[in-house]
Amino acid sequence: MSAETTATDWPLFEVFIRSRSGLEHKHVGSVHAADARMAIEHARDVYTRRQEGVSIWVARSADIVASDPAEADALFEPARDKVYRHPTFYAIPDEVKNL
């Protein structure tokens, strides 16, 4: 059977959907497609059968660079002790208004 010897995949694309106007695109999954146009069409068929989207982005999975989970501490730990970046860090008397 030819399938056993010749099966190869089209490139993998990651799919991002904007669910409504005004919201950001969000990652939903991936599709295989010969090119970007086909990736959009496949994403439409696979991820928006119930009007889940008003806009689709696709990007070749190979082009996405992701942070390494092993480096998560080095990347994100420095923000942990900087609570003064949040407004609730500052004590303001109750009688002061509009602040």
């Binding site: 059977m1 399938a3 056993e4 099966a7 190869t8 995949d9 993998l12 999954g29 991936s30 599709v31 295989h32 696979v46």
Partner: peptide, 23 residues
Amino acid sequence: MYLYSAAETLGIERAQMFTQLLS
């Protein structure tokens, strides 16, 4: 398709899964 896509995140290719099904 959702599930093949999820399986692929574990490092198996879709073509390989199809081959396993068809064989």
